[in-house]
Every structure is written in structure tokens, then in C-alpha cells.
Amino acid sequence: MKFEFSNLTVRFGSQVVLDQLSETIECKALAIIGPSGGGKSTLLRVLGGLLPADEGKFALNDLWVENNESQLNEYRKMIGFVFQSHGLFPHLSALKNITLPLIHTFGMNKQEAEEKAMNLMKKFGLEDSSHKFPIQLSGGQQQRIAIIRAIAIEPKLLLLDEPTSALDPELAFDVLEMLKQLVESGVELVIVTHHLGFASNACDTVMYMDEFGIGEFGKTEEILKSPKTERLQRFISKILSI
């Protein structure tokens, strides 16, 4: 994937969350790390076409995305987005959560969509959960179903906003293992995460963001093993000390 940002600016009231971000990123799997309040999730929502930037623009694989709703909606169809938690529709079973976009956004017929959803659920050991409602699933199962829903549409890119932050370590491990498998099978993704282990094992590129913008950005090994800025050094040592 190739991302280009040009003067990307997002404000919430008087607070500037992203300040004239300009960067070009080419990678397979990008991990965005950094302290809370640094604009990581905001950037991900902009990249997902969910939050229009106040200024500037961005491009995915040379396709520049404008701030108009019909173009954004078309763009969103190319993206799989996984939220931090509660990302499933509570009134639909796991199976229906997965088939909903296939049927209603992509016009697939019901039988075909269910077959595809069941195959994916089997692949990740979730076939027994197909008729359960989100409330009947553990947090980890919910996140894995949300990931299946996002990849079922065969997106050009998978975006994940701290998908394990609401999970205990064991459940987080299952989700991260699933994501690792996906990366190995060639799925391209951008993940906001605090799991440096996952970033270093599964992502080829890391971006560090804090309240001052993009601190460091580059190949995972370089960034995590020999951070140049004091901000990133402090952040890494804090995370590792937990």
C-alpha cells in the first residue's frame, strides 16, 4: 500500500489534533504507536474515510480522496475498519454481522455471502459462534468476528483501531495471532496498537505519534531497536516497564 498525506489537518473545536501532516508511506503493514491523545485514532479515522479532514487531503495507492460524502462512501467500500470495542451490531448474529456488508453494500446473494462468512469463521475456529449474538460472545470473539467482517469484503486495506485494548492478555493474544496470520497471507493493514511485540513481529513499518505530530517513522527494526528521539525512547521504556 501507498499512503500520501498532504497538509492533513483535523481540529476538534479549538484543539488541533492533526497539524498539517505531510508524509508518504509505502509498506505492507504499518503499526501506529504512541501515547494517548497523540492523534493516532484520529488519523486512522481520517484514513478510513470516517472523519473528513478540515484541511489537506490524502491518497491511497495514488487515489486522492476528496471531502465529499459520495466519494468518501465509495472509498469506505475499499476499506475494512475494526473498532476498539463494541464494533458489532448488537441486534444481529455473528453470521449476519459478517454478511450484512456483503449483501447490502456489495450486492452478493444471501447464500453466497453466508457460505463465504462460514468459511472464514471455520478458518479462524469460530463456526460455533455463527448464530450467537454479540452479547453472547467474549470480547476476543467479538473482535475476531469484527475482523472477519472487515476482511470478508476483501478490502484493499484493513484498518484497526487498538483492537485489543479492551481485552485481557489471553484474548488479546488470540486476536493478535489472527492478525499475524492475515499479514502473513498478504493482507495489508494499518493498526493503532500498544503491543510493541505485535508491531515488531508482524509489521514492517512503525510510525510514532504524539501531541507534537509524527515523531518517528520508518522500518520497524530501526524504529523500535534504535529510537532516535528522546520522546520515543521514553515511550518505549514506559511500555516495556509495564
Partner: peptide, 24 residues
């Protein structure tokens, strides 16, 4: 947030209303 999830999967406003908002 549910409407944001619905937008993220590319549902039109009408489908968002019919499939997500109305049943709940």
C-alpha cells in the same frame, strides 16, 4: 458509534436507517 460502524461498512443512509437504526 453504531452509525459510524454502519458508515464504515459503506451502507447508504437509507440502509443504515432500515437495517441498523429501525430494528433496534
Amino acid at each position: 458509534k453504531q452509525l459510524e460502524i454502519a458508515r464504515s461498512i459503506g451502507l447508504s443512509r437509507l440502509k443504515m436507517f432500515r437495517l441498523i437504526l429501525l430494528p433496534q
